[in-house]
């Protein structure tokens, strides 16, 4: 039982990651692929933040009367990773817009007939 209590957080996060990952590789629509990438990444962020949690700790902002803080390092890493994520999303979506203009579709199976791509 205690094994489950100690790990359930990671397991659900893994489940979330895999749902995002599935959307990325299985979705037919390019916008949906990008949504999938975001879900995948956000779930990885959750794994990092879970690493940083300390039971009974509080947010890592020094204040009177608080002795236990959660670990600030994973927070910093994920702030950076979130920014990287939105940057990729922006470029990806811009590509989708251009693909729509050039091919007239953003459905993967519809330009497979013209040439095997993506």
């Amino acid at each position: 039982m205690s094994f489950i209590v100690d790990h359930y957080n990671y397991w659900i996060v893994v489940l979330l990651m895999m749902m995002g990952f599935y959307v990325v590789i299985a979705a037919n629509n390019l916008v949906k692929k990008i949504v999938g990438l975001n879900i995948f990444q956000t779930s990885v962020f959750m794994m990092y933040i879970s690493i940083g949690k300390v039971n009974g700790g509080s947010a890592p902002i020094a204040a009177e009367g608080i002795t236990t803080y959660s670990n600030p390092l994973p927070h910093v890493l994920i702030l950076t990773a979130i920014v990287v994520g939105v940057a990729t999303t922006a470029v990806g979506l811009a590509l989708v817009v251009r693909i729509k203009r050039a091919y007239g579709t953003v459905e993967e199976n519809e330009f497979e007939d013209k040439e095997d791509l993506i």
Binding site: V35, N38, I49, G52, L79, I82, V83, V86
Partner: peptide, 22 residues
Amino acid sequence: LDAVDVAFTEAAVGAGISTVLM
């Protein structure tokens, strides 16, 4: 999970900017 800065950013970026762009 005590990550207030991250939450702030995720709300502004994920729910804000990313959604608008999508």
